[in-house]
Amino acid sequence: MPQVDQPKIELVEETVSIDTERVMTGRVRVATQTEFVEEFAHASLGGERVEVTRVPVGQEVTAVPQTRVEGDVTIIPVLEEIVVVEKRLMLVEEIRIRKLATIEDVSVPVTLRKQRATVERRDIEARNEETSR
């Protein structure tokens, strides 16, 4: 039996393919500038100084008095032995030491660095126009 050609229908299908490509559109140039600026650094400095006062007492004592603190004053007894027919302990004077708080404001010049940046955009199209002239 001979074969008869049967009609054929061909089907076609389209597909899409997407790719990306990097294109340079411009360049930038960044420059920094360093400036030196004189400024004053301010601070308050705390400290203490002492004030010494000698107070004559001239009193006979039988025992060595202790160093004592009265308020903000430290009292240190100063003794001497004197020769009499008998030996006596005399409180000759007291040394009083008082702490005084001090505050001193100072200004010290210091050099500080500060940087600034400038950005310059350089487009490729503008560059191409310059080279084609």
Rank of each mutant, 00 (worst) to 15 (best):
L100Y: 05
I95V: 15
M24F: 12
I9W: 03
V30H: 13
F36Q: 10
E14C: 02
T15L: 00
A126S: 14
V12Q: 06
V83I: 00
R68F: 01
E10G: 11
M90R: 05
Q3T: 12
G26T: 13
V78Y: 05
A31R: 12
L91E: 02
E86F: 07
P56A: 01
F40L: 08
H42D: 12
V16H: 02
R22G: 13
V85L: 11
R133Y: 14
R54N: 14
R27T: 13
V73M: 00
V23Y: 10
R133W: 14
Q59L: 04
E39C: 09
T74D: 06
Q66W: 03
R49Q: 14
V28R: 13
V50I: 11
R27M: 11
D72W: 02
H42C: 02
I75G: 01
K87I: 02
V69N: 10
V37R: 03
I103Y: 10
S44Q: 02
G47L: 01
I97N: 00
E21G: 08
G58K: 10
P56K: 00
V23E: 14
G47M: 00
V106H: 06
P77Q: 06
V108P: 06
D105R: 11
I95Q: 11
L89G: 03
V57C: 01
V84G: 13
I103C: 08
L79M: 07
V110F: 00
L79Y: 08
Q66L: 03
N128R: 13
E60N: 03
K8D: 09
L100T: 15
L45I: 09
T111H: 04
T131D: 10
N128K: 14
Q115T: 13
R116K: 12
S107F: 14
V69F: 03
N128F: 07
A41T: 15
T53P: 12
V73P: 04
I18Y: 10
K114Y: 09
P65S: 02
P56G: 00
E130F: 13
I124W: 08
R122F: 07
N128T: 12
I9Q: 15
E80Q: 11
I18K: 05
F36N: 09
K114C: 06
E10N: 15
D123H: 09
R98W: 04
T15E: 01
R113G: 11
E120P: 07
V83N: 07
E120Y: 05
A43R: 06
S132F: 05
A117D: 09
D5Y: 05
V23C: 10
T131C: 06
P77A: 01
T62E: 04
E86A: 07
E39Q: 14
I97W: 01
T62N: 04
E120C: 09
T131M: 09
V12N: 08
V55L: 04
R27S: 14
E81S: 10
T67P: 07
V61N: 01
D5K: 10
I9T: 15
P109V: 01
E21F: 08
D19R: 15
E125H: 06
P109G: 04
N128M: 13
I18C: 04
E86I: 02
R121V: 15
V69H: 11
V92R: 06
V57L: 02
V106F: 03
R121Y: 15
